[in-house]
Design a protein around this nucleic acid. Structure first.
Lengths: 199, 199
DNA sequence: AAGCTAAGTTAGTTATACCTAACCTGAGGG
DNA sequence: CCCTCAGGTTAGGTATAACTAACTTAGCTT
């Protein structure tokens, strides 16, 4: 369990960090007040002095990620000169946010997308939809200028981007390793752009 | 909820079908005896006349998938003449098993890979490991004969394959759609092989 | 020094999950 | 025609999660 530099944080921030870590390493079923409290050396009841419900903790974790991701996507589009550069900037920014939040949100995205809870469902699907929309717009631009294959459906490609990151989190989670989720961003981006075949 | 042709099955088979469907559509948290029983029009206690525990239901779902997948991977290697053909056969066979089981096992793979339960952890990680091993062997062969980029790590490529299927299940689950998980297998394989850029 | 408050504590309440025990019933075999 | 037993039922035991109420305490303000 990565708990480096946890001391200097407030209890509320610690709850969020530990909570995210639990979601990734142990799964939503272990995301309980008692589990978090035990790791912090307090009681479960104390959790509710900082958050009014367990759902509220999850909402804050998601909110942080979504706002950072959306922001950096906008910046990528502004700063990139070519389509390829835009996509690359977008992916690299996304990877940074992903590493910073230890992959918690893609995990939540998956686990909560089927939740009966309308609150989670709408927040996450709105995020995915708007992110997908941003990417498809770049893809369409690339198809117009001839750098991206015309026979691909832009929305499918956008989902392939999101899915590829999701897949990396999956591999990371399954491997049980510590350290970075995407060890070699260059290779990751290269496979997405040009595949695995030499041609 | 897809419940076509459920009538002719035995209750035990119905439990497996409905159970898998719940895992994909509603998540592991809703995979409860009561939820399954309600959908079958029986009581929760009746479930335990067919399975001695809830875990046993999951084990049977996984077992079916793992054995089919492993079998078809062996066949793909035998039947394919070139490396490309082998990989394509392997992917197509995997897609078939995936569609047949409605994506339940990749979901389980993800949700249970972090379970404290040694039983699940080892079954699933053994499956992923051996499957990964089978793919990396083909990739290495491809690198030897020069059809696959030499600078790629075979194990990473293998995980990219598994991850890409996982990603499709994510997209399917998130979209909430019915129908096939991978709508266009040709395009799916093409992106994996050659990426999205025209070059 | 008095008192307020944030952040703990303990000890519950309520809901729900898994699973068991004991009972019931209807169809098929002897 | 009765017996067996698979596959149901109801009722309930046990564990655990979310959350609450009431109390405590340390630190800060006035």
């Amino acid at each position: 369990m990565v708990t480096e530099n946890l001391e200097k944080l407030s209890t509320k921030e610690k709850i969020i960090k530990i909570g995210a870590e639990i979601i990734v390493k142990e799964g939503l079923r272990k995301f309980t007040a008692k589990n978090i409290a035990d790791k912090l050396g307090i009681t479960d009841a104390a959790i509710f002095k900082h958050f009014k419900s367990m759902d509220d903790i999850i909402l804050e974790i998601i909110d942080k990620y979504v706002s950072k991701c959306s922001q950096s996507a906008i910046e990528a589009v502004e700063k990139g000169h070519t389509v390829k550069e835009k996509l690359e900037l977008l992916l690299r920014a996304h990877i940074d946010v992903l590493e910073e939040t230890r992959g918690a949100v893609p995990v939540l995205c998956f686990e909560l997308s089927r939740s009966e809870d309308v609150k989670f469902k709408s927040i996450l699907s709105n995020f995915v939809e708007s992110y997908k929309e941003k990417i498809s717009r770049i893809i369409r631009e690339g198809q117009m200028e001839g750098s991206i294959k015309e026979d691909l459906d832009p929305e499918d490609v956008a989902m392939f981007f999101i899915g590829s990151i999701q897949a990396k989190v999956f591999a990371y989670v399954i491997s049980g390793k510590e350290g970075r989720i995407i060890e070699d961003p260059d290779q990751f981006i290269s496979i997405i752009f040009y595949g695995i075949m030499k041609r």
